[in-house]
C-alpha cells in the first residue's frame, strides 16, 4: 500500500512537469512540423535566467517572471534562426540540434563548468497519502496542471489557438482559409518556450543547473511524444506513464534507478511495435515508396 501511494504521488508530480515540457515539444512538431532537438534548452535557459535574475534582484518573485519572459523571447529568437530552413524537416532537425549544442557551449563560457542552485519559493515538505512531498515539487505540479488547463482553453477558445489546431490538422486547408501559417508557426515555438520555462523556473530549484542538462530533457520529451503519438496533444498523457515506469523500476530492485531510462525506452519500443502511431496518434497508412 505504501509503495503504491509512493508510486502514485511521485508519478503525479513528475508526470505533470513532464507534461508541460513535452506539450511544447509535441506542439512544435504537430503545428510547425519542426522536430525541435533544442527543446531542452528552453527548460535549461529558464533555470539559468532565474538564477541570474535572482543574483541581481535577490527576489525570486521578480526573478521568475523575468526568466519566463526571457526564455519566451529566446524561443522567438530560435524561430528566426531556423526560419530560413523551416520548410526542410531534415535541415530543421540539424539546425535545432546545432542551436542546442551552441547554447550549451555558450553557457559553459558564461557560467563556467560549475553547477548552480536556485532557492525554493516555498521550503519544507508535507505528507500526501503518508508519503513525504517537497512543497516546491507539489507547487510545480499544480502550476503545471494550471498552465496546461489554460493552454487547452487557449487552443479551443481563441482565434490563435484554433488557427494552431487548423494548421496541425491540415496545413493546405488552413492556408486556403486565410491563416497566416508563418505567424502560427512562430507563436507555436514561442508558446513551447513559454511552457518549458514555466516547468524550469518552478522545478529546477529541486535540482542543480548544469550546461549539459538540456539533452536529457529533450530525450524525455521525445520519448513522451513518440509514445503518446507524434503531434498529438492528448498523447502527452504518456508523461505519466514514463514517470510511473521510472519510479516503479526504481522501487523494484537496487539497480532500478540506473536502468529506468532503459525501461521506458523499452516500453516505447514495445508500444511502437504494437501501435506504430503511438498511443493517441492517428494511423497515417503505409509509407508510400516513390520509384
Amino acid at each position: 500500500m505504501d509503495v503504491i501511494a509512493k508510486l502514485l504521488v511521485y508519478s503525479f508530480i513528475t508526470g505533470s512537469i513532464y507534461c508541460i515540457v513535452a506539450l511544447g515539444f509535441s506542439l512544435v512538431f504537430g503545428v510547425a512540423n519542426i522536430l525541435n532537438l533544442a527543446h531542452g534548452v528552453f527548460y535549461m535557459i529558464s533555470g539559468y535566467l532565474v538564477y541570474s535574475f535572482f543574483v541581481v534582484t535577490q527576489n525570486m518573485y521578480t526573478a521568475i517572471p523575468l526568466a519566463v519572459i526571457g526564455t519566451t523571447l529566446f524561443g522567438a529568437l530560435t524561430y528566426f534562426t531556423i526560419y530560413t530552413v523551416i520548410d526542410s524537416p531534415f535541415k530543421t532537425l540539424l539546425a535545432t540540434f546545432a542551436i542546442g549544442g551552441a547554447i550549451s557551449e555558450i553557457i559553459f563560457i558564461v557560467y563556467g563548468v560549475s553547477s548552480y542552485g536556485i532557492p525554493n519559493i516555498i521550503d519544507g515538505s508535507f505528507m500526501i497519502l503518508g508519503v513525504p512531498v517537497v512543497k516546491q515539487a507539489f507547487l510545480s505540479a499544480i502550476l503545471a496542471l494550471f498552465v496546461l488547463s489554460g493552454f487547452v482553453f487557449f487552443l479551443n477558445k481563441t482565434d490563435l489557438g484554433r488557427a494552431m489546431r487548423a494548421v496541425a490538422q491540415n496545413i493546405e486547408v488552413a492556408k486556403l482559409a486565410g491563416i497566416n501559417i508563418n505567424r502560427v508557426k512562430f507563436f507555436t515555438v514561442v508558446v513551447a518556450a513559454f511552457l518549458a520555462s514555466v516547468a524550469g523556473v518552478f522545478y529546477l530549484p529541486l535540482q542543480s543547473l548544469h550546461p549539459n542538462m538540456w539533452m536529457n530533457v529533450t530525450i524525455i520529451s521525445f520519448v513522451i511524444v513518440v509514445l503518446g503519438g507524434m503531434g498529438s496533444i492528448k498523447g502527452i498523457i504518456a508523461s505519466y506513464i514514463i514517470a510511473f515506469s521510472e519510479y516503479a523500476t526504481t522501487l523494484s530492485f537496487a539497480e532500478g534507478s540506473y536502468v529506468k531510462t532503459g525501461v521506458y525506452l523499452l516500453i516505447m519500443i514495445i508500444i511502437l511495435m504494437l501501435r506504430p502511431q503511438g498511443l493517441f496518434g492517428k494511423y497515417l497508412g503505409p509509407l508510400e515508396v516513390k520509384t
Binding site: 509512493k6 511521485y10 515539487a137 529541486l206 535540482q207 542538462m213 536529457n216 519510479y247 526504481t250 534507478s257
Partner: peptide
Amino acid sequence: TDLTTELVE
C-alpha cells in the same frame, strides 16, 4: 537528478 524515491524508501 531525482533521488526522492530512494531517499524516502
